[in-house]
Nucleic acid binder design. Sequence first.
DNA 1: GCTGGCATAGTAATCGATTTTCCTCAAGCG
DNA 2: CGCTTGAGGAAAATCGATTACTATGCCAGC
Lengths: 218, 218
Amino acid sequence: MEEKRIRRQSLYDVIRSDIVFGRLKPGEKLKATDLRARYDASVSTVREVLNRLASEGFVFAREQYGFSVAPMSESGLRELADLRILLENHALEQSIITGGTEWEAGVIAAHHRLQRMEQRRASGDQSVVEIWKRYDWEFHQSLISACGSEELMALHGTVFDKYLRYQMLYLSYRGEVAEREHRELLEAALVKDTQKARQILTRHITSGVEHALSAIRK
Amino acid sequence: MEEKRIRRQSLYDVIRSDIVFGRLKPGEKLKATDLRARYDASVSTVREVLNRLASEGFVFAREQYGFSVAPMSESGLRELADLRILLENHALEQSIITGGTEWEAGVIAAHHRLQRMEQRRASGDQSVVEIWKRYDWEFHQSLISACGSEELMALHGTVFDKYLRYQMLYLSYRGEVAEREHRELLEAALVKDTQKARQILTRHITSGVEHALSAIRK
DNA sequence: GCTGGCATAGTAATCGATTTTCCTCAAGCG
DNA sequence: CGCTTGAGGAAAATCGATTACTATGCCAGC
């Protein structure tokens, strides 16, 4: 039962992931003809994908100049972190208020998957980075999944990945600390303590930013 | 001095505006070949534009099915309104705190332009609707322009337009009331009263939603 | 020696044609 | 009679070629 994907979708996934995980460097020029060869697709298909990525902010586009990987900056990181705090805190609070048993079950399951990967990552297994980060994404998404707004969730999902790109750039790994924060976040959510949950989440993100910035300054 | 635009950009503007102002109905199928004739462009160009609009949420896309104008629903309106309140309140507060004289000047100028159009609209001139709404957009953007986050402003800009689409659908016109709220918003911002400004803005949006929903229920 | 314009090459933008996929409908079989 | 299956057509996805633009560098004139 092989999953059949159209070329555009798989191309989109590959390029997006190449950008998020740094295989395509910030500022790097994305020539349609080069990508055509590299990814084995026609210019039209490549351009469709680049247009999508451009409107999401992963790719920078200028008329008559073409496409390049979106640049990164310290202010970019701060902006995205602030935005994530704003969106995710709000969604989290709503979600805790309205979430029922099904939501709780989903959150616990997502946390379990994440935790397993965190352990493998902690034991030095570098190969699981992408899967680990996907589970990270899924855990945070599951936490806010009862917020009642698909628009909000979609927005958060994109912001999360744009923020993740910075974590990957700075090779920011906080191991045990982030692991504990996830656990605390889970607990606060399950006992419906919105204020505590907001507090932990804010710290989770803020200290992540500080950690990344201090790492790059050395 | 004729402005030279590339085809894709002008096509994007036209289709986007056609969707926002309801000339393309929600759910309407967007066949590439039809659009090709209607807007005089090739399928590739049309598809590039539709991909962009899809990732912004104005167009709905499904594999092997093609594109259609994004559907609209009451919950969609509520979600976008909530999102706009969240984003704009936050940005407004930051902007009031950091904004200096230049920011104040920009806000006053934007409000003046908006007010002039509000007057023309109030006197029954239906032809200015699009310009009027553009000035509305610009006024709100200028208010948050000192928030320090380009990401936030870009996000707000898109959300504003998606919300505007609902106002256009419901033909929601609050005339004098909205005019007064804009004036109050300007005043609160200039005297740096963040709490008052947040309060007015929240009411501005909330009552706009209520007005629209009560109109459709008759 | 410097500047301004023109030729040229490289790349982006656009195009129409071709291939692939999906849906419909009807005929054949159980 | 109902279900499966395959032919046919419509529309989406993909393609390579063509056109348009821009930047680079060379040459002529000042």
